Amino acid sequence: MTAMQYFWRHPLAEQVREEGRVQAKAEMTLRILEWRGIAVPDEVRERVESCTDLDRLELWAQRAVHAADAAELFVDE
């Protein structure tokens, strides 16, 4: 049992969880735009999918809710 508890505290386990959170946030950001009927150009998709900063992805997801077009995600950057 101790080995199993240790695994969840292991840095590798935390890295895998963080990567999953980043990927999920990137996917959600793109989905919000798509659900709203906003075209997502390849360059926007690539920029969102390649981002590893969870805080930046959160900001982009919030912007996606109100954006008139996909490029508005990156305003002021």
Rank of each mutant, 00 (worst) to 15 (best):
A13E: 09
R45S: 07
P41G: 03
D42F: 03
R56D: 04
T52V: 11
A71Y: 11
A70R: 01
R63L: 04
E46C: 03
E46L: 15
E14H: 12
I38K: 00
H66I: 14
H10F: 12
L54W: 03
T2Q: 12
E77C: 02
R17T: 09
Q5L: 15
E43W: 11
G37P: 04
E77N: 03
D55I: 09
E58S: 06
M28R: 15
L59F: 08
R36Q: 08
A26N: 02
E34L: 14
L57H: 02
A64K: 00
F7Q: 14
G37V: 11
H10I: 10
I32M: 09
V44W: 01
H66D: 10
C51N: 11
R45N: 03
E58D: 09
D53S: 08
G37C: 05
L57V: 06
Q23R: 15
A3V: 12
H66S: 10
E18L: 12
M1C: 05
A39T: 15
P41E: 12
V16I: 15
F74N: 02
C51H: 02
L12A: 11
Q15G: 06
S50N: 14
E43N: 13
E19M: 10
L33I: 10
A3H: 05
E46P: 02
E46M: 05
H10G: 02
S50G: 08
V44E: 00
D55N: 11
I38V: 15
L54Y: 06
L12K: 09
R17G: 04
A67K: 00
P41L: 04
E46T: 10
A26T: 13
T29D: 03
D55L: 11
F74T: 07
S50A: 15
L30K: 06
V40N: 00
E72A: 04
T2G: 07
A13C: 06
A71S: 08
L33Y: 04
P41D: 08
A67M: 02
Q62W: 03
G20I: 08
H66Q: 11
V65N: 02
R17W: 08
E27N: 09
A13W: 09
Y6K: 14
C51V: 04
V40I: 15
E77S: 04
E14D: 13
A70C: 07
L30Y: 08
R21V: 10
Y6E: 14
A61D: 01
Q62A: 13
E49K: 10
R21M: 12
M28C: 05
A67F: 04
V48H: 01
R9Y: 10
A24S: 09
G20E: 08
G20Q: 05
V22N: 02
Q62V: 09
T29F: 04
R21A: 10
W35D: 13
P41S: 07
E58M: 03
H66V: 15
P11S: 07
R63I: 04
R17Y: 09
M4R: 11
R47Q: 13
W35Q: 14
M28F: 15
V48L: 02
A3L: 13
Y6S: 09
L73D: 01
H10L: 03
E14G: 07
E58Y: 05
R9A: 12
L12Q: 14
G20P: 06
K25R: 15
L73E: 01
H66P: 00
D55R: 12
E27P: 01
V44I: 15
G37L: 07
W8V: 14
I38G: 00
E34V: 12
H10M: 05
A64Y: 03
R36F: 07
A64E: 03
V16N: 00
V48R: 00
C51S: 09
I32P: 00
